[in-house]
Structures are given as C-alpha cells and as structure tokens.
C-alpha cells in the first residue's frame, strides 16, 4: 500500500455528487456539486470529473490510488448504482482495494465522530427516501463502530413514533430529512444543526468512517437499496 498511498472517496446516494482524495501528510481535497432546486442530480456527468479534480488537488493521479471508498446508499436507486459501478470499475482499472460503506455512516462520522461537535453521542441520520418516506439510520455511539449499519424506512408521519422507539434519545439528527422535519425532531429534544453542510455527505468523513473497514471482494460491494424493486412475478399477479 505504501507505493499507492492515496485514498479516494465517492458518494452519489444523495442528490449531491461527492468525491474526496486523501494523501499522506494529511493532504486532502473534497469536491461536492449540489443540483440547483428543481434540477436533476448530475451523478453520471459529474462524478469522474470531480474525482479527478480531487486527486489533482492532492498532487496525485489515478495510478496513485490504493484504496477506494464508496457510499453504498441508501438513496436513489440510480444514484447508488452510478457510485458503485464507477468505484468497482476504478478498482479494476488499477487494482486498487475497494471498500463499500453505508452513506449515513459518513453523515454520522461528521456529526459524532472523533473531534466532531457531538463526539461520541448518539446520532440519528434522517434521509429523504421519497414516496413520503424517510430512511433512518441509528448510530448510538456517534459512529459506525464496526457494527453493521442497518437503515430502515418510516413514513413521514411515523418519525415521532420511531424516535420514541429508539430507547436512547438522539443528541443530534443530520441529513436532508432532518432538515425537512426539523420541527418534529427539535420537538422531541433532538438538535438539528443550522449549518447546511452538516446535512450533506462529506467525502473526507466518508473516508474516515471507513478507515477501519477491510478491503472486500469487488463482487461484495453492492448498493444498499433497503427497498425492493417494484415487480410482481406473473404467477402472483391478479
């Protein structure tokens, strides 16, 4: 690994397109493009360009990347596939190690990880899941902590009940869903940071969150859909 010391992070689970590169000596660069209101995410168009930008900014090229961290979702089905397909192909291109990590782990790391404002305290990640639902992911210790992260969905009007079910109240909630449901969350005593950056995926945090994760076989790095595809076998149709 010493001859290819650069880590590249990619995430396309949210409408933002995110890339980051970390080189030895704590040099790091993050790039994020957020679509304007009403615009579609530009994951396909933007991801590789942003990744190349981030690499250039830390003085690296594609051949210097020894490890690729990709956010697996949940998010839009197409978005997470763009990230995973890109990361797997980049890993193939130069034989880099590949690590997949749940996207909410990056949000939790930025809010509750070492040195973060809510360090070590319980974090709830709340993401817009469309169809009047939210993805919730629970980090009782502020970080993924090596435990498997299991996001789940709740309907918009089920958020208050889901909070009550957690047992421990979250210290903070982050994610685009947290912004949208600030009232429900603050009403339950959960802090929702004002700074919009707290609610966007940070590529450097994604890389930090995966620091302890071992490299896996590329075939095991799969999108985290949470929801099934809407398809009914002919035999079960009426």
């Amino acid at each position: 690994m010493t001859d290819r010391p650069v880590v590249l992070g990619l995430d396309t689970a949210t409408p933002a397109t995110v890339a980051a590169a970390v080189a030895p000596g704590a040099r790091s660069a993050t790039r994020i493009e957020v679509p304007a209101a009403g615009e579609r995410p530009g994951h396909t168009r933007l991801l590789l360009g942003l990744a190349e930008d981030a690499l250039t900014a830390v003085g690296a090229g594609w051949g210097d990347v020894g490890r690729i961290v990709v956010g697996l979702g949940p998010g839009t089905f197409t978005g997470i596939r763009v990230g995973v397909a890109t990361a797997r192909a980049l890993a193939l291109a130069h034989g880099a190690g590949l690590v997949g990590i749940a996207t909410p782990a990056a949000l939790a790391e930025a809010a509750g990880g070492p040195g973060a404002p809510f360090e070590g305290r319980p974090v709830l990640v709340v993401q817009d899941a469309r169809r009047r639902e939210l993805f919730l992911t629970w980090f009782p210790d502020g970080v993924a902590g090596g435990a498997a992260v299991v996001p789940w969905t709740v309907p918009h009007d089920g958020l208050a009940a889901a909070l009550a079910d957690l047992g421990t109240p979250p210290a903070v909630a982050v994610g685009d869903g947290a912004l949208a449901f600030r009232d429900v969350l603050t009403g339950a005593g959960v802090e929702v940071p004002e700074d919009p950056a707290s609610h966007a995926v940070d590529g450097a945090a994604l890389i930090r969150a995966a620091a302890a994760s071992p490299v896996g076989a590329p075939g095991d790095v799969r999108p985290l859909y949470v929801r099934d595809a809407d398809a009914v076998p002919t035999a079960e149709r009426r």
Binding site: T44, L47, L48, E52, W62, F77, T78, R81, V82, A85, T86, A87, R88, A89, L90, L92, A93, H94
Partner: peptide, 20 residues
C-alpha cells in the same frame, strides 16, 4: 433502459478515464 445503460457507461468511462 437508462438505468441499465448507466451501469455499463460508468464502468467503461471509469476504465477509460483511469487508464487514459
């Protein structure tokens, strides 16, 4: 199918970009 196309497209693009 655009969702299907995108997987192959990103795969090919990533290989082309990373390998020049």
């Amino acid at each position: 199918l655009v969702g299907a196309l995108l997987v192959g497209l990103q795969t090919a693009k990533a290989i082309a970009v990373a390998r020049g």
